[in-house]
């Protein structure tokens, strides 16, 4: 990853008259964490980093900015936000534009070809109790990890986030400037989903009951999701109260089904929900099931094209209708 080139592009973006600030990554305060960086023009551009540790999605911050109440058209000028986007982030942005969440001309996208990121849980299990900020670089299929002055070499497969192994588009699909080489789209992999589908009904039920019983309903998965930006949410509604506040298996099941179905044809597979889940629920298993259905039934992929119509708002006469009995 060419960080120098990223900094140059970032400086160029911030030099533009219409760019208000840039959202990127900076070093976190401890261990293997990175922080989002909000850099305004004339601020220090050197704090910007890009490493395999940058495993969070920044797209959410775009929406948070735009939904501030009381902002007039005048206050939004200069109106552009520059954002550093990986492959999955670019799909999130595509869908935002498609759903008219953010107009395209409000964004200046610096695309970064992504080689996959590190799973926070894996690296923290491998190097526990690291308090100083660590550094990671990638070299020939290995991660070079500098922890407390010592350098370790770890094969990439051991730390790579599982979702990155099934990533379809490592290169951003939408960008103003691209850093790094264009990587080819990868084939579909839904083997683990198909294997789970093949299990008997009772076994699947038992599995999910066990999983959902762990959920503490902190709603972190909902809050972090770049697809969730409506101000009215059925989960918060008290009248009517669709869902009780108690965190028991039945309410949790209902919550997870609502959350997952909300992502039907919209999930872009960034895996943020799973990353932030304090109880390690396999949420992407549900999301990827819907992704698989969307692909197999409707040949639809979310976030591929900003001009496409979203799946559940369109109807074609040739759509499969097996669900009508």
């Amino acid at each position: 990853m060419n960080v120098q080139k990223l900094k140059e592009e970032a400086a160029r973006a911030l030099g533009r008259k219409d760019v208000k600030y840039l959202i990127g990554y900076k070093k976190g305060s401890y261990g293997f964490r990175v922080s989002p960086a909000f850099i305004e023009p004339k601020e220090d551009i050197d704090q910007l980093i890009m490493s395999p540790l940058c495993n969070m999605s920044l797209v959410k911050y775009v929406m948070m900015e735009e939904t501030l109440p009381g902002l007039t058209e005048q206050a939004l000028k200069p109106s552009k936000i520059a954002i550093v986007a990986r492959g999955c982030d670019s799909r999130a942005i595509n869908l935002l534009i498609e759903e008219k969440g953010v107009p395209r001309d409000r964004l200046y996208i610096i695309g970064v070809s992504c080689q996959g990121v590190i799973d926070q849980r894996k690296i923290e299990a491998r190097f526990p109790q690291v308090t100083e900020p660590a550094e990671v670089t990638e070299e020939n299929g290995n991660y070079i990890i500098t922890v407390q002055g010592q350098s370790h070499t770890v094969p990439k497969e051991e730390l790579l986030a599982e979702l990155c192994t099934v990533c379809r588009y490592p290169t951003p699909l939408i960008y103003d400037k691209l850093i790094g080489d264009k990587l080819a789209a990868r084939p579909f992999h839904y083997d683990e989903i198909a294997a789970f589908e093949a299990l008997p009904l009772e076994e699947r039920l038992a599995y999910w009951q066990q999983q959902f019983s762990k959920c503490v309903r902190c709603y972190a998965c909902r809050n972090v999701c770049p697809r969730w930006y409506s101000t009215i949410c059925s989960l918060d509604s008290l009248s009517p109260q669709w869902l009780r506040r108690s965190a028991d298996t039945s309410e949790n099941f209902m919550f997870q089904i609502i959350r997952t179905f909300h992502l039907a044809g919209r999930c872009i597979g960034c895996g943020e929900c799973e990353r932030v889940c304090p109880m390690n629920l396999p949420l992407m298993k549900l999301n990827r099931k819907l992704e698989k259905d969307a692909k197999e039934l409707f040949n639809y992929e979310s976030g591929k094209d900003p001009k496409a119509k979203s799946l559940l708002t369109t109807f074609h006469t040739e759509d499969p209708q097996g669900f009508i009995l």
Partner: peptide
């Protein structure tokens, strides 16, 4: 899709 999601999570 809801039907297949429910089926996936173990509902008849």
């Amino acid at each position: 899709m809801l039907r297949s999601l429910l089926e996936f999570s173990g509902i008849n």
